[in-house]
């Protein structure tokens, strides 16, 4: 247990040395300025415009920053033999993995708190709390996915591409599924029929990210605390899948 917390601590120190906080603060500032500008030019519902744009842009920034940070930091650690050095001590691979995951999750938690602090000026506190809780769940899934991709691909480009593809697909899969039921689909086309079947199979292995932290929760205050429960359950299940798959890869890796 001590080893896990030690690794978590070093991961947090690395984030501080990387000036990650400054980068994220800068992105927050850009997001606020963009939202204020768009709200300023809107004729009506300016608060709604600002809140929706700010929440959507901050969610993208948070996912982007945490994914890039986890992937680049882990790839550097593998290339610099930091991983090999850590595992030369009496530390199990699982402890190393959980320590890293805990460290990155804590960074995600800090990001979410900063985002919540910005949003509190635009939406009711309870809605902000529910929204950022959901965003934290989304960031946990992305963190676990980044760790898996790093241990699977061990290269920045491949890992980032895989993570980006996953995110886009998981966020838009429900819309693609709806389109596949539309009238433009030719039921006699074998290619289209089988593509839809493949799509439905893929859907079983992806989390329903489109249900996570939509702007409407903040804008129209249309959610309650109990709506977060399925999101937490989905996060627990999917983070378990990704973590176990990541551990599977880490244990097979010949360092």
């Amino acid at each position: 247990m001590y080893a896990i917390f030690a690794i978590t601590r070093f991961t947090l120190l690395e984030a501080l040395h990387n000036r990650l906080v400054w980068l994220f603060l800068l992105l927050l500032l850009i997001g606020i300025m963009l939202a204020e500008f768009m709200g300023g030019i809107s004729i009506t519902e300016s608060l709604v415009v600002k809140t929706s744009l700010l929440s959507a842009s901050l969610r993208i920034f948070a996912v982007f920053v945490i994914s890039l940070f986890v992937i680049t930091s882990m790839v550097r650690e593998i290339n610099d033999k930091g991983l090999a050095l850590t595992l030369s001590f009496p530390v199990s691979r699982a402890s190393y993995y959980f320590g890293k995951f805990l460290g990155y999750s804590f960074i995600a938690f800090m990001m979410v708190l900063l985002i919540g602090f910005c949003l509190i000026f635009y939406a009711p506190a309870l809605q902000v709390f529910i929204w950022i809780s959901s965003l934290f769940c989304e960031l946990l899934i992305m963190t676990a996915l980044c760790l898996l991709c790093v241990f699977t691909f061990t290269q920045v480009t491949t890992a980032i591409t895989a993570v980006a593809a996953f995110y886009v697909l998981a966020r838009s899969l429900h819309a693609i599924q709806l389109m596949s039921q539309g009238p433009l689909i030719d039921p006699n086309s074998l290619v289209q029929t089988y593509s839809i079947k493949v799509l439905n199979i893929i859907a079983h292995f992806l989390p329903d990210l489109h249900r996570f932290s939509p702007s409407s929760w903040l804008v129209y205050a249309e959610t309650s605390v109990d709506q977060i429960i399925p999101i937490i359950l989905q996060t627990v299940i999917y983070v378990s899948v990704l973590t176990m798959a990541g551990l599977f890869d880490l244990y097979r890796k010949n360092l």
Partner: peptide, 12 residues
């Protein structure tokens, strides 16, 4: 891994 994958499929 197997259990969590099965739970994910059932959940979906």
């Amino acid at each position: 891994l197997l259990i969590s994958l099965a739970v994910q499929i059932i959940w979906h």
